[in-house]
Structure formats: structure tokens, C-alpha cells
């Protein structure tokens, strides 16, 4: 790994230095597939950059971490460049001081790679309208995470207000394995679902999304109940001759129960952030099903 610290610098100096570093380690300048912008405060920065590096391990990317620092200090840009560490691409940590904290886009735009997609990720607090945010505007895809908000439920209920196509939330990504398993269970005729509930630890935004998605697709009333967790623990769906149940208590293996069928065990592990992010990076088109789900979450709350 080669890393390089630059105090009080500019975007063009960073760009030149990146080229120099790449030549030093002999890595090719081309072949990157993505620019991933991570907007994070200092406390979340380490984990976020790590997850981003892991998510892009197989696919060389430029990871730009924007870290706003003291607004009161003199205006300054500090950069930390890493090439060939953990990731096949490049990592640049950009620390913004003073007035510059309000102009991160001016630092980023010369550093975005040409011709390839940009994804913006807020591992912590996200702007109210990600698509209108100066940094968010660069991204084809804008990834937020309701779980890390101060009030996760409030955050997911407000998502639709600031939604623009290309937005997505990791609270939604977290339930893909659940949705996938449920869909597989419904690949054989199940019959009409009357009602049901999703069980999760209190204040879990993903449970809210899953319940709404199930209500919308099954046309049945699916509520959320609290359990001791961790995370999502069960989905109960009442059908004419009993219940379809998926239960998960150890956050690794789930049991699928259906009336008249033997119980079956299925791997259903909670996934690390890097895997969630990798799922987000895979498809860069707007997620319309997510849009409907957050709309439903908002409606349900206002009802």
C-alpha cells in the first residue's frame, strides 16, 4: 500500500498526486468501474471507508470520502491518498474545514472519473432531499441509511418527501434476503393471505418496509410487532389452512413453516454493510419497488 498525506491542498494537486502514486505502484490508470462518494463525519468514516473498500474489492473503484470538519476553522482542504490498500482502486479522504464544508461539490467534481457511474452514500445523516443536495446531484444512485438516523422510523417515513429516482436506503437492502425467501415460498401456490405480521426489535425501519411491501403485494393487512431481536425475527402470514411462518432467532438460520409441509431450514444471515453496499452498486437504475414501499410507509403512518 502507498499512502500519502497532503495538507492545505487543492483538487488538482490531489489529482496529479493520484496519477503519480499509481505510476509508483504500477497500477493502471484505466479500468476503474465506479466512483463512490462517501459523505460521512469523522466518527463513522473508518467503518464506512472499510465497507466501501470491501464492496468494491473485485471492481476497481475510486472511493472519495468527504469528511466535513470544523466550520469555525480557517478554510482548508486536507487529503489522505491511499492506493492499493484493501481495494484494487484508490481511496481519497477529503477533510474539509471552514467555509469549504459548504462547497464539497467544488472539490469533488474534478476528482470524479469520466464516463463511469457515480454513487453517493451517506452512512450517517443524510440530507432531507438527497437528489437536490450538491454532492448528491453527482450520483446516479444515492444511498442513505435510515437505521443510523437519530430516529430511524421517522427517517424512513420521511424518505418519500425527499425522493427522486435513484434514491435507495440500506434499510430496504437489508430485507432483500427475506423478500427473496418469501418470494420463493410463494413460488408454489399458497392461497390467499388474510393478514399477518412482521416481528422485529423496536424501532426497526426494515420491518416497517417489509410489512408495507407485503401488504402491497399480497393485498392483505400486515402489521409490525415488537420482539427482542436482533433485527427482524419473524414473518407470520395467515392463510386459509394455517400460517406460513419464517422465523429467525439466531440471526443466521431461518425456519420456514407451512401447513402440511415439513419445516425447512434456510440460511438467512444478517449481512455486513459491505455486502449491502455491493448489492446497491450492482444495479444503478431507479428502484421503483422501493419507491412504492416508502410511499406506503408514509401513507400508513399518516393514516
Amino acid at each position: 500500500m502507498t499512502s500519502f498525506l497532503m495538507g492545505s491542498t487543492t483538487a488538482s494537486e490531489i489529482s496529479a498526486q493520484l496519477t503519480r502514486l499509481r505510476h509508483q505502484v504500477g497500477a493502471p490508470a484505466v479500468g476503474m468501474v465506479l466512483t463512490l462518494v462517501v459523505v460521512s463525519d469523522e466518527s463513522r468514516q473508518y467503518d464506512a471507508v472499510r465497507a466501501a473498500s470491501e464492496a468494491s474489492r473485485e471492481h476497481p473503484s475510486r472511493i472519495l470520502a468527504v469528511i466535513p470538519r470544523e466550520r469555525e476553522e480557517a478554510t482548508r482542504l486536507d487529503a489522505e491518498l491511499r492506493v492499493g490498500e484493501m481495494t484494487t482502486g484508490e481511496v481519497v479522504l477529503l477533510r474539509l474545514y471552514g467555509e469549504l464544508t459548504g462547497h464539497a461539490d467544488s472539490v469533488l467534481s474534478p476528482l470524479l472519473l469520466p464516463d463511469i457511474p457515480v454513487v453517493v452514500w451517506w452512512p450517517g445523516d443524510a440530507p432531507e432531499i438527497p437528489g437536490k443536495d450538491p454532492v448528491g446531484g453527482f450520483g446516479q444512485r444515492r444511498v442513505t441509511d435510515a437505521r443510523s438516523a437519530a430516529d430511524p422510523l421517522a427517517a424512513i417515513r420521511r424518505r418519500i418527501d425527499g425522493y427522486s429516482p435513484g434514491d435507495t436506503d440500506l434499510a430496504w437492502t437489508r430485507i432483500t434476503p427475506w423478500r427473496s425467501l418469501l418470494a420463493a415460498a410463494f413460488d408454489q401456490p399458497v392461497g390467499k393471505v388474510r393478514d399477518g405480521y412482521v416481528e422485529a426489535e423496536p424501532g426497526h425501519p426494515s420491518a416497517e418496509l417489509l410489512a408495507v411491501w407485503l401488504s402491497q403485494t399480497l393485498g392483505a393487512d400486515i402489521s409490525v410487532r415488537e420482539s427482542r431481536g436482533p433485527g427482524l425475527t419473524a414473518v407470520h402470514l395467515r392463510i386459509s389452512d394455517g400460517e406460513v411462518v419464517i422465523e429467525r432467532h439466531d440471526s443466521r438460520t431461518a425456519t420456514l413453516k407451512r401447513p402440511g409441509r415439513p419445516d425447512r431450514h434456510v440460511a438467512l444471515a444478517r449481512r455486513p454493510t459491505s455486502e449491502l453496499l455491493a448489492e446497491e452498486l450492482r444495479r444503478l437504475d431507479p428502484d421503483e419497488v422501493y419507491e412504492e414501499a416508502i410511499k406506503g410507509v408514509a401513507d400508513r403512518h399518516h393514516r
Binding site: R179, S180, A183, D187, T217, V289
Partner: peptide
């Protein structure tokens, strides 16, 4: 299957 939606590209074909 009501849970399968062609727009829902996250769900793999199982």
C-alpha cells in the same frame, strides 16, 4: 406469484 414483480430486480430467480 404476487411477490414477484419484473421491476423488482433485487429478487433473484430461485
Amino acid at each position: 406469484n404476487p411477490l414477484r414483480d419484473p421491476r423488482d430486480k433485487r429478487l433473484p430467480r430461485v
